[in-house]
Design a protein around this nucleic acid. Structure first.
Length: 821
DNA sequence: GGTTCATTTCTACC
DNA sequence: ACTGGTAGAAATGAACC
């Protein structure tokens, strides 16, 4: 029979001697299908030089061993002309029955004297399948095969099972709208198996339901009452079965919702068999748990957002509330969970269950809307990287870059390097750092008419233009690019890269060119898909440089990363020179951007200079106009007389303010200090002087001293970056975190710790005065700390630019110094 | 017992 | 441990007098 379908989830099943791939997907008429296929299992051997390769191949072919109750053996060995890191090699392709045999066979082969290296031993079988059979996730496929009606490949809850004979990409690639179901649970405690699942909400396109075992009056239709926890879990399974989602989406569900439900199922002696093959939800425990459901793609949106878009978000935390607020403009319902937790322990009839269920439902609504919002980012990324959706939604940028390379090696006839071993990683991590970007030493001051140029995708363009990668690194010679002096640790040396384009720079260049096309298309026909593609390609190309210097990378190349930085420094400084020689005053530069004063020159003249600079830049390197600004302000460092780097504010021609590095944009300062700083930066940049700003700050200081500031504005938030007992220096947030843990609150690595500095003895350390916000009354804050350590520090060196000293800020009493506060 | 300085820690910039 | 280096700054903690 013929079938057109879209692959959503992949897994492999071990049938003793054989291993099959099961592709779960949706057909073009909306049916659930499972397509069965297999592909060769193999790895590569690169033999030592000057051996009899035919003989060696024969020897490898005879390898077999009894292992785990069956025979692992080599099926076939083929001698092939391949490339490894750009160099020609004659390699042995060693075929085995079952991917799990690769590990045992390669250990046997390792001991043979002819063996130099063994490669692609750690390539996932599903990745192998996708590459070799060219079956891409989320890309419509036309296939033919035999329909299977029995349970040979598992007791599958799908409409069609097909044993594949032929498959190829469909010509028609219509848009695919997945059946997304969002879910969220509420439980009586954070500890698994101890607490109880109280309710679970489910939200999809035409469904909004809550299942709960806590009964209440006047419940609307979408509330399903369960008799107890066991019944609740069973009803949850029924709903999933009925709805048939392609994707089950949660927020932090890898680490909480699914493991919690599974623990509750275990406790009640039932299975959480959501899998289409009736399998239990399965966990892989590492640093972070992942929860997999066979055939249904479980997506933990928190992970995806954290990995791929967190850094463009303004939110101070990645909590569902903050992220939803920023991305879809909606928030969680307000509910005092600590209070409910108390009531639950005493008398749960006092709990307002009606309110609680609405809260639970809202969480799923937010998760569902976020999933829709993120869908194109996720699906386009999946199509581009070509790894399964489940995997891509959990991948870090280094993994994405690596998989992009791995899935495109075929055309270069390249064998992939292995993942670095533990020892190798240790060795790489102990290497000295190399010198990175150049940052220009600014001078504090208020500047007028500022022009900003920046290099378009500087690092990627340098990697492409100078062909940087481990495969092209070579000795000095003809047809090589010579780098400037590269500083690694205490060593300074030049490196040489061959001019014949190597595969990593080629792939990177392709990525940049694809993005260029998408940007043009986007201009003509803006759409969320193009927006997502543009974003994905931009972030991927930016991550490529970091990947080269990442200790866990298969294509690790410290020399290439260090060279990219050195070349970038060289051209940024050279460009600064050129601009200065034209008579402009350069005021600042950081990595790929240069700021200078227009002075008496016109914008047009600056643009002419830009054109002239571009004519002399090598390869694909290009300098662009970032913008012209009316004003900009730089301040001094707290220590020393120099201007602070990475700290400035600019006023654009349409009166928009861009603030970098200042406390305003840092989450570890209290709202009051941030607000005040933001306001005075606005006043100063728009008015060109500090007169009104000074009046304003004095007013605020008066308010602090009269204890009029509400405590919410004084909360300082700091994230816990490591386990509580690993801290050497016990800062305020560590003390508070300890106290919270003592009180049974769920505090862990990554938790945001909130505290207020309260009144205390003068000589007390900050950490002794730090209190949890609900531990102190309104006005119980430390006046001296908030005036001096927060407000003054946030505004002091801004006023210094106008020669207003800190003393003058103290309510007009000029003779009184600040230290007397 | 108080001052000074190095270290630890967090967060931002690009 | 899950892309890189550069930089500012607060607060602690040890060294110092």
């Amino acid at each position: 029979m013929k079938l057109k379908f879209i692959p959503l989830d992949f897994d492999n099943i071990d049938m003793g001697n054989d291993c099959f791939i099961r592709i779960f997907g949706r057909t073009d008429n909306g049916k659930r299908c499972c397509v069965i296929d297999k592909t060769d299992s193999y790895f590569w051997i690169i033999p030592k030089k000057d051996i009899d390769i035919e003989k060696y191949a024969e020897k490898v072919k005879k390898t077999k061993i009894e292992h785990a109750g069956r025979e692992a053996k080599v099926l076939d060995v083929r001698i092939k002309d391949k490339k490894y890191l750009g160099k020609d090699v004659k390699a042995l392709q060693v075929f085995v029955n079952n991917p799990k045999d690769i590990m045992t066979i390669k250990d046997l082969v390792k001991t043979m004297p002819e063996t130099e290296e063994k490669k692609e031993i750690d390539l996932n079988y599903i990745t192998r399948y996708i590459i070799d059979k060219n079956v891409k996730p989320l890309v419509w496929q036309d296939c033919t095969g035999k329909e299977i009606l029995d349970t040979k490949y598992g007791d599958l809850d799908v409409d069609i099972i097909l044993e594949l004979s032929e498959i190829k990409e469909s010509k028609e690639q219509e848009d695919f709208e997945p059946r997304i179901l969002a879910f969220d649970i509420e439980a009586s405690g954070f500890e698994m198996a101890k607490g109880e699942v109280l309710m679970v909400s489910l939200v999809g396109k035409n469904i909004q339901k809550v299942i709960t075992c806590k009964k209440f009056q006047n419940a609307p239709e979408n509330v399903i009452f369960a008799d107890n926890e066991e019944d609740l879990l069973k009803k949850f399974k029924e709903e999933i079965k009925k709805y048939q989602p392609d994707c089950l989406v949660g927020y932090f569900s890898d680490g909480f919702d699914l493991p919690y439900m599974r623990a509750s199922c275990d406790k009640n002696d039932i299975k959480l068999d959501l899998g289409l093959d009736k399998s239990n939800v399965a966990f892989t425990r590492g640093i972070m748990t992942t929860s997999k459901i066979t055939g249904i793609v479980h997506i933990d949106l928190y992970k995806f957002i954290n990995n791929t878009i967190a850094y463009i978000l303004q939110s101070e935390t990645l909590s569902l509330n903050d992220v939803a607020k920023e991305l879809i403009g909606e928030e969680k319902l307000k509910l005092d969970l600590a209070d409910i937790s108390k009531q639950l322990k005493k008398d749960d009839s006092k709990v307002d269950w009606k309110k609680y269920y609405l809260y639970n439902l809202q969480d799923s609504i937010l998760t569902y809307k976020l999933a829709l919002k993120m869908w194109y980012n996720l699906s386009e990324l999946t199509k581009f990287i070509q790894e399964p959706l489940f995997h891509v939604s959990r991948s870090s940028y280094s993994q994405l870059v690596e998989n992009y390379i791995l899935h495109n090696l075929k055309e270069f006839n390249e064998i992939a390097p292995n993942r670095p071993t533990r020892d190798k990683i240790l060795e790489r991590r102990s290497r000295p750092k190399y010198e990175g970007a150049f940052v220009f030493q600014p001078q504090a001051g208020l500047y007028e008419k500022v022009a900003v140029f920046d290099f378009r995708s500087l690092y990627p363009s340098v990697i492409v233009s100078f062909n940087l990668s481990s495969a092209s690194l070579q000795e000095e010679g003809k047809d090589t690019y010579e780098t400037p002096e590269v500083d690694i640790g205490k060593n300074k040396q030049k490196f040489y890269f061959g001019k014949e384009k190597s595969f990593i720079p080629i792939l990177l260049q392709r990525l940049i060119e694809t993005r260029k096309k998408i940007k043009e298309e986007k201009k003509k026909n803006p759409s969320p898909i193009l927006e997502a593609r543009d974003y994905n390609l931009k972030t991927l190309s930016n991550a490529a440089y970091g990947y080269l210097g990442f200790f866990g990378a298969r294509y690790y190349s410290l020399e290439s990363a260090a060279s990219a930085a050195a070349i970038s420094r060289f051209y940024t400084q050279k460009t600064i020179d050129t601009i200065q020689k034209k008579g402009y005053k350069v005021i600042y530069a950081d990595t790929d951007s240069i700021m200078f004063l227009l002075g008496e020159s016109t914008e047009k003249q600056a643009l002419e200079l830009l054109k002239q600079i571009n004519e002399n830049l090598p390869g694909t390197m290009e300098l662009e106009l970032e913008d012209f600004y009316k004003r900009g302000i730089f301040v001094t460092k707290r220590t020393g007389e120099f201007g602070a780097k990475k700290k400035y504010a600019m006023l654009s021609k349409n009166d928009k303010i861009k603030i970098r590095g200042f406390e305003t944009v840092r989450r570890d300062w209290c709202d009051l200090a941030k607000e005040v700083q933001d306001k005075i930066l606005n006043m100063i940049l728009k008015e060109g002087n500090a007169d009104n700003a000074l009046v304003y700050v004095k007013e605020i200081i008066k308010e602090i001293k009269s204890k009029k500031i509400p405590k919410e504005k004084l909360i300082i938030r700091t994230q816990l970056k490591k386990a509580i007992d690993e801290y050497e220096a016990i800062g305020p947030h560590v003390v508070i975190a300890k106290r919270m843990i003592d009180r049974g609150m769920p505090i862990d690595i990554g938790s945001m710790i909130e505290y207020i500095v309260s009144e205390g003895k003068e000589k007390d350390r900050i950490r002794d005065k730090a209190k949890m916000p609900d531990e102190i009354k309104e006005g119980g804050y430390d006046i001296h700390y908030y005036v001096h350590n927060q407000i003054m520090h946030a505004v002091g060196n801004i006023f210094e630019v106008f020669k207003v000293s800190l003393e003058e800020l103290s309510e007009g009493k000029k003779q009184k110094s600040l230290s007397e506060f």
